[in-house]
Design a protein around this nucleic acid. Structure first.
Ligand SMILES: [Mn+2]
Ligand SMILES: [Mn+2]
Ligand SMILES: [Mn+2]
Ligand SMILES: [Mn+2]
Lengths: 222, 222
DNA sequence: TATTAATTTTAGGCAAACCTAAAAATATAA
DNA sequence: TTATATTTTTAGGTTTGCCTAAAATTAATA
């Protein structure tokens, strides 16, 4: 369809619109894009018109933007690049979890497709990035797994930690102390009525975590 | 000195001016920059003025541009990034020799210094890139080795191949057939008067190469 | 429902990085 | 040394991606 290479800005917009749209289903407001990208609404309107001309989104005045089929395709490729670079930064260069996003935000715009395929190969085709987010394959296909909040897990159910919501140093340190990280297996054995704290098991050890902590951890049921 | 981050364009200009200046000594003409970057001379004049305001070069109207101390500093860091990425592309991702330059041309502009230092560490502090060009260290210091053309080597002198001048597929294939690549040790045993062909030894095997071939190979004397 | 508030768009502008055409300066050749 | 050619700069213009201020539209509230 669209043959012209996109600019860094256009790519960031498309990625943002895709992320806000919940897999292309929802209309995305000008204001919400503005907030994520920290660009004034008036400028967002400009860009949204341009992307609309390129058929990457549909935009109805005053009504919002909806990402198109080809827009989704583009977005998934950028997300693929972003997450593969994150894996590289984390696993090969030993960057900490919370330092990789901004660098990947730049690397994702390096244009060579050959590069990203070779990187994928080099990293042995990882399925998730260091934050637990799934990595689309070359064709843009995401192996879908349903994630729910740890706090929504029922008694005696188990899951694998796959996403940390709150990205902040204090919280990361707390999780480290509790031995919780992406990939950790957790089983819920009790929910306290008193304050909704959860009693869980990690590595055969019982521990108690507050509802607030639990609600900031997403898991994949097993 | 200058604290503002440079744009991709500014970085490419600085790098080009440095490369054309023979380590900062020569004045660089507007036209020569124009030719390397494939940007019209009028545009080069614009940029040269801007870089001059930022004290990265000195520019005298109609006389040419000379890179400044701080300009050299900047240039060496970009070159460091470029060459380290080339090593990564070649050694880790198995890109062929002649495919890495254009990709590195983009990667060199990713801004994180932490990233490049970690990459350097990951690659075990390489001293030369896949083309045989030296890689400046974190401080911008280049370990200098004198390179001469293979055709200038005298009889019974030896050297290590450290640079291929002509970058073209035919020539690369020819070199491969001759078992010549960066790092190959070569000894000259005869220079034919007839056409200046060289008789050389590689891996204890004698072979004959034309002057034209020899003059496209740079070596470090040993 | 009428006002007020919030959202979105239009209008006009600006900086970066390029362009073409023409003028000015310098270099080369007759 | 004058005429011609080459190089470089100036002048004016375009596109991209942003901005502010004000107008238009839609949503919320009294
Ligand atoms: Mn980005
Ligand atoms: Mn991520
Ligand atoms: Mn470059
Ligand atoms: Mn190189």
């Amino acid at each position: 369809m669209s043959n012209n290479k996109l600019t860094k800005s256009e790519e960031d917009y498309i990625k943002t619109i895709f992320n806000l749209s919940e897999f292309g289903n929802k209309q995305v407001s000008t204001n919400s894009i503005s907030k994520v990208l920290k660009i004034e609404p008036a400028s967002v309107t400009d860009m949204v018109k341009k992307l609309s001309l390129k058929k990457l989104i549909y935009h109805k005045k005053y009504k919002g933007s909806q990402i198109s089929k080809s827009g989704i395709k583009v977005a998934l490729q950028i997300i693929r690049k972003h997450r593969l670079w994150e894996v590289f930064l984390h696993e090969k260069l030993n960057f900490k979890w919370d330092k990789i996003h901004n660098i990947a935000e730049e690397l994702e715009h390096v244009s060579s497709n050959k590069l990203i395929d070779k990187l994928d190969d080099y990293l042995k085709y990882p399925k998730i990035d260091p934050h637990g987010d799934p990595i689309p394959n070359k064709l843009g296909v995401i192996e879908s797994t349903i994630k729910i909040s740890l706090s929504d897990l029922k008694i005696f159910e188990s899951g694998i930690v796959s996403r940390i919501i709150k990205e902040d140093d204090h919280f990361f340190k707390l999780l480290k102390k509790l031995n919780i990280q992406i990939g950790t297996k957790i089983k819920v054995i009790e929910k306290l009525e008193f304050d909704n704290s959860l009693e869980i098991i990690i590595d055969n050890k019982k521990l108690l975590i507050s509802k607030k902590i639990a609600s900031n951890i997403k898991i994949t049921k097993i």
